[in-house]
Each structure stands twice: as C-alpha cells, then as structure tokens.
C-alpha cells in the first residue's frame, strides 16, 4: 500500500512538472517555463560570485552522479 503511494506520488509529481511546462509554453502564458525559472535563479550573485549558477550546476552534477554513478 505504502509502495503504491510512493510510486503514485512520484508519478503525479513528474506529470505535474510536464503539465506545468506545457502550460508555460502556450502562447500568452503567465507561467514561466522551467528553463526561465532556472535562468532567473542563475542570475543570483553575491558580489562577483555567481552563486545561483554554481548552486544549480552543483545540484545537477550531484543528481547525475547519484543516479548514474552510484
């Protein structure tokens, strides 16, 4: 039962990501695409250090390492 709950929940979350991205790409949509959200996060800087860029790259690097190397 709990296993089905986990699988259903993860699938629902992934489906929601896809649906919101689809909605964001419609003409005149007020929802930014996931790429635009990431680009906005990557604008964040502390002084000369691109903290947002480093953080997002680091997170994505770790994600790939976690799933594809571990």
């Amino acid at each position: 039962m709990m296993r089905l709950l986990a699988i259903g929940g993860f699938l629902t979350a992934l489906a929601l990501f896809a649906v919101i991205e689809w909605a964001a790409r419609r003409e005149g949509s007020r929802i930014p695409s996931l790429g635009e959200v990431c680009a906005f996060v990557m604008r964040y800087e502390v002084g000369p250090v691109p903290v947002g860029r480093i953080g997002l790259f680091g997170f994505w690097w770790w994600l790939g390492w976690h799933f594809l190397a571990r």
Binding site: T12, I20, E36, V37, F40
Partner: peptide
C-alpha cells in the same frame, strides 16, 4: 535570462513540494 518572474512561477512549487515531501 528574465529580470523578474511573474506570479505564475508559484505553480512550480506544486510539483517541487510534492516531490520533495515524498
């Protein structure tokens, strides 16, 4: 990159929160 995000960006919190909580 966009200079600011509209209020529609909060929609992204829905799948991100669901995934994160699970």
């Amino acid at each position: 990159a966009p200079r600011r995000l509209g209020r529609g960006a909060v929609w992204w919190l829905l799948p991100a929160t669901l995934f994160g909580v699970l």
